[in-house]
């Protein structure tokens, strides 16, 4: 029996290991589509997808758009500032108006934690979370897992250290939930001011020295230091952050030979990661971007047409 996803993808916390495995395996098949002379398959022909972005995003939005177009879906981008969102319309009103135009799926990024789930419960279209506040960014977590699986074959027993601004990071949360379900060991490392208060309750190891995390890990997932938050006094200075927590070539000299470095982007070169690491042989940052399109194609394909009422129709032939 093939596992199935529900109507929405709002996070990895609520998925089973089998469901995550299904998404990763499906993404494996979709990688090849992007290598074809004609990078397009008709799987979502006739589906209309709205990319509803209430926060700035380049990489994630473009990655979703490529995934949608390579599946032959029709797409519309709605961004704040140029829509009636800026006139004070509520999230649900915006989505219901879109639904009245007969859309099938919504990809949403929103600054409020839980907004994707909130929306999914109120509209009939499939909802995919492209980042909600400090909560989750499931497709980023999935593409990180796919990249690690490509490199190491399996996630079972793999040691992954998530470094940096864990407090503000939805990427960290999605990675922790997803990796643990597939049997990986997860640690976090960063200044105490950027750690959630209850971090050990997430079932992760906590390192306060980056050298210790590097010595322990098979893979480092280096989070972006969210510079826009630096006014609020979480760290003394960028220079000091780099000196104490920066992932540098010198620090990686003591790492295992097979250690790889991930970064969800956009990078602050010279702050959380040095250029010779980002561009060096341990970096899998560009494979992450390539895998992002395959993961999003897999999620769109698995959710499209999915809904409560077709859960009872049986048989695929």
């Amino acid at each position: 029996m093939t596992p199935r996803l529900g109507k929405d993808l709002t996070g990895l916390e609520s998925l089973t290991a089998e469901q995550i495995g299904l998404i990763l395996d499906t993404a494996e098949a979709f990688k090849e589509v992007s290598e074809r002379p004609i990078k397009k398959v008709p799987a979502l022909r006739g589906k209309t997808i709205v990319n509803l972005f209430f926060e700035a995003s380049t990489r994630t939005r473009i990655s979703f758009e490529f995934a949608e177009k390579r599946l032959s879906a029709d797409t519309v981008n709605v961004a704040t500032g140029v829509s009636s969102v800026s006139k004070g319309e509520t999230l649900v009103d915006t989505a219901r108006n879109l639904e009245a135009m007969r859309i099938d799926m919504v990809v949403i990024r929103h600054p409020a934690s839980g907004s994707a789930d909130f929306l999914g419960k109120r509209i009939r279209s499939n909802v995919i979370n492209a980042g909600d506040g400090k909560h989750e960014h499931p497709t980023q977590g999935l593409l990180d897992m796919l990249t690690l699986r490509d490199r190491f074959g399996s996630l079972d027993g793999l040691k992954v250290a998530i470094c940096g601004d864990v407090l503000h990071s939805r990427v960290a949360r999605s990675n922790i939930w997803g990796l643990k379900k597939l049997g990986a060991e997860v640690a976090v490392c960063g200044p105490p001011s950027l750690m959630p208060r209850n971090v050990s309750e997430l079932g992760v190891e906590v390192f306060t020295r980056i050298e210790d995390a590097i010595g322990w890990a098979d893979a480092l997932n280096v989070l972006r230091l969210q510079l826009e938050r630096m006014t609020s006094g979480f760290i003394p200075s960028l220079r000091e952050y780099n000196r104490v927590f920066g992932v540098t070539r010198e620090r990686l000299e003591r790492a295992s030979d097979t250690l790889v470095v991930l970064h969800p982007g956009p990078m602050n070169r010279g702050v959380e990661i040095d250029s010779d690491v980002a561009d060096g042989p341990r970096s899998v940052i560009l494979p992450q971007v390539t895998n992002g399109v395959a993961i999003r194609m897999a999620v769109l394909y698995l959710l499209a047409g999915g809904g409560p009422d077709w859960q009872h129709q049986g048989g695929s032939e």
Partner: peptide, 23 residues
Amino acid sequence: LDITLYRDDLQAVGPRPVVGETR
């Protein structure tokens, strides 16, 4: 060749068929 993504009944079947390798 895996033809799943080109099936004419893809909108009607559920759950989503597993997509195999094309090479």
